[in-house]
Design a protein around this nucleic acid. Structure first.
Lengths: 339, 339
DNA sequence: GTGAAAGCGCTAACAA
DNA sequence: TTGTTAGCGCTTTCAC
């Protein structure tokens, strides 16, 4: 079946009548080798179609040059662009990227993390699931001194590097914009409190209200899973209030879009009857009518930085680097839905 | 630094006063082992916090339980949903997924493929770049009998499994719909001929014209890279013709969107002045105004099937399985831009 | 049903 | 600068 048996460094060594270690050194551009042998070996390697067995090298060196990534869903634009950033940077450093998705399920997340752990990834980059309320599975890594880095949604009880955006301020700014444009009754469709990002966005919202001396109305706060359906329902409840809001800060673009749909069906004018804002700047947000005001999160940049940071940590194993929380800037994008 | 040294099967063996091979067998649920020892070993393994060294096992067994994936860009919805499908299926079979992106560059693609090859992936799933006009890098795999599977954009000169959609028919159907709605001068913004999918879409277009006895007009065919900018320019050229088209079949949704933008800026009514259709059903296509007619490709399903097929092939190594081209159905989605 | 021994392909400490 | 040697942790004959 196999026409070409694998060539090993021993085959090369044998052919060249030198030792395997010399071949190894030549192939790895080790310093203690003569130009001549190096050339000879490399030429022969190509000639014989040698390809290094990364597995064996990894086993020996106890490094895999692989980083594991766990995200809730790969097909959400924010995450896929983050992965794109991770992959682009990792590539330049010769690292592989293994990805897995938690589907926002704690159990699946634990499973993913375990598997990556067993596969001896050199580090893990993760954005946690909506259900994650424990941290045992992350401690595996800290205990073995394997770098773990959270981006966007982090686990507050684990000391580690983090790449985040300033959700509090972003929530504040986008709410403030609604106030500025004259909204008096501002509602918020929030995500699960379990996740810092949603809590922060909500607190930013509260802060803006407070600063403008707008009293907070319990009924104007809806906590949901931020799916399309839940968003639609929450928005419907808001608009059914005796005194419905004239501005709604939706926790993400998906719910903002569902709110928009609701308005179209029910003949509500956006932004005149009710102004809407989202969060994330999904690809569709710029092109819906009316276009959606939102907060742009630099997904690609976050991924890129995450990879940079973790690979740096991996490569400086031994030296102690203090943990860092890197906050990337968001951009407030005001479009028709609130202008 | 490390508080917990790695536990190996030898440690377990030593503790239990049995041999390492017995431990190995017990851990792998080998048949030639007594219930009693199996239990004893597995209990001890948990107790001591043993975790298998996948690397060593892989080196020995010459399998990695890993499949490599190469796509042009991870952050395009079609591809990220395909990856999602791949990951979901692979997960159920205990396979890891290494991803990399070619950025539609041949050189990067070659590099990715080589790296995956050196990393000894058990199989590779790929959608080729826009530049790919050679197949040497794929032959590596066929020569070593490592399964390779193309999805969507395939390399015609490599015999292999393929998961595709019927681009010819889809192109035909969507053009036919334009004819049906009364368009007389139908243009097409095509992608590079190098890729089968774009050629097929174009041929479907030609077929529909032919069937309706509409003569083909050279000026109505624009071949581009299907980016936003190129799409916009191509569309502008079309509309600047002395006899501009009243219907345009765009090779993908991105160009259709840029055409839409052009119309808005230039006060052209869609679909009345010119009807538009895209291809792919990107998330934004349903929500732009006017909403975009398009062809829905089952990205997730394609990925899922791809993983299923390749893992099946990997697991039946040795048996000869004929190559198959699996054609998944598309859905014609008629929305406002052409209705 | 269990153990002994060999070796997957590579790297690295030590010797020369 | 090069060679020798000893594993990395596991699986898998082959004996018993």
């Amino acid at each position: 079946m196999k026409k070409h048996p694998e060539i090993t460094i021993h085959n090369l060594a044998h052919e060249l009548k030198i030792s395997a270690s010399t071949v190894s050194r030549a192939l790895n551009d080790n310093s203690r080798i003569s130009e001549k042998t190096r050339h000879l070996v490399q030429k022969k390697a190509i000639e014989m179609g040698y390809r290094p067995n990364v597995l064996a090298a990894n086993l020996r060196s106890k490094k895999t040059n692989t980083i594991g990534v766990v995200v809730p869903r790969i097909d959400r634009y924010f995450f896929s662009s983050a992965i794109s950033g991770i992959e682009d940077y990792a590539w330049t450093k010769g690292f592989n990227v293994i990805i897995s998705q938690s589907n926002d399920l704690l159990l699946k997340e634990i499973n993913c993390v375990q598997t990556l752990f067993n596969n001896r990834v050199d580090g893990i980059i993760i954005s946690i699931s909506m259900q994650t309320n424990e941290d045992k599975h992350f401690r595996l890594f800290s205990e073995k001194n394997i770098p773990i880095l959270f981006f966007d949604r982090f686990c507050p009880t684990i000391e580690s590097d983090r790449i985040v955006v300033d959700d509090f301020n972003s929530g504040y700014k986008i709410t403030y914009q609604l106030i500025e444009r004259g909204c008096k009754r501002i509602a918020h469709i929030a995500g699960p409190e379990l996740l810092n990002i949603y809590k922060d966005r909500k607190n930013g919202y509260l802060r803006a209200l407070n600063e403008a001396k707008i009293p907070f109305t319990e009924a104007y706060l809806e906590v949901t899973g931020l799916t399309k359906d839940e968003g639609m329902q929450a928005f419907a409840r808001l608009m059914a209030l005796p005194n419905p809001p004239d501005g709604v800060f939706c926790g993400n673009d998906t719910t903002a879009l569902s709110a928009l749909e609701y308005c179209q069906k029910n003949n509500l004018k956006v932004p005149n009857d009710v102004a809407l804002t989202g969060f994330s700047d999904e690809p569709f947000s710029a092109v819906v009518t009316p276009s959606l005001s939102t907060v742009k999160q630099p997904g690609y940049q976050m991924g890129f930085q995450a990879a940079k940071r973790i690979i740096h940590r991996i490569e400086s194993a031994g030296t102690i680097i203090p943990f860092e929380q890197i906050v990337l800037p968001t951009t407030l994008i005001i479009r028709d839905s609130s202008s």
